[in-house]
Amino acid sequence: MNTRRERKKMQAKKSISENALRLFLTKGFMNTTVAEIMEEADLGTGTFYNYFDSKEDVLKYCLGEKINEVRHTVEEIQKSSLEPSQKLSEILLTAGKNFEENSQLISMFMQFRRQASGARRESPHGSTFWEILVDIVREGQGKGVFRKDIPVGIIIEMFMGLLQSTMNSNMEMPFMDNLKQKLYLFLEGLGVKQ
Rank of each mutant, 00 (worst) to 15 (best):
R120N: 11
S81P: 01
A119N: 03
S81D: 14
Q111H: 07
R113T: 09
I132Q: 12
I154C: 07
V137N: 01
F109Y: 15
R113L: 04
V152H: 05
E157S: 12
S103N: 15
I136W: 09
P124G: 02
F146Y: 11
L88D: 04
R121I: 02
G142Y: 03
L82S: 10
I155S: 00
H125D: 12
M167Q: 10
L162Y: 07
M167E: 11
N98M: 11
E83H: 11
E90T: 01
G153R: 08
Q141G: 05
D135M: 12
Q111M: 09
K148H: 07
S89Q: 15
V145I: 15
P84E: 01
A119F: 09
L88F: 07
L163T: 09
R120M: 15
S127I: 13
R138D: 03
G144K: 06
E122R: 04
P151H: 10
W130F: 11
M167I: 09
P84L: 04
E83Y: 14
Q141I: 05
P84F: 06
E139Q: 14
P124D: 03
L105G: 03
V134Y: 09
M158Y: 05
I106Q: 04
E122Y: 07
W130Y: 13
S123P: 00
Q164I: 12
S85W: 06
P124A: 03
I150S: 04
Q86W: 11
T94W: 11
L162I: 13
A116L: 01
Q111L: 08
V152P: 05
Q86K: 13
M108D: 01
F146P: 00
M158T: 07
I150D: 03
D135I: 08
R138Y: 08
G144L: 06
M160R: 12
D135K: 14
L105W: 06
M160V: 10
L163P: 05
N98R: 07
S117G: 05
I136E: 01
F109K: 02
G118Y: 06
R138V: 10
Q104R: 15
K143R: 08
G118E: 06
Q86C: 08
G126K: 02
V145P: 00
R114D: 14
K97S: 14
E122K: 05
S127P: 06
L88A: 00
K87T: 00
N98I: 04
M110I: 11
R121E: 02
K143L: 15
M160Y: 06
G96N: 09
G153W: 00
I156A: 08
I150L: 15
Q104F: 04
E101N: 11
V137E: 00
N102A: 08
F112G: 12
G126C: 07
L92K: 01
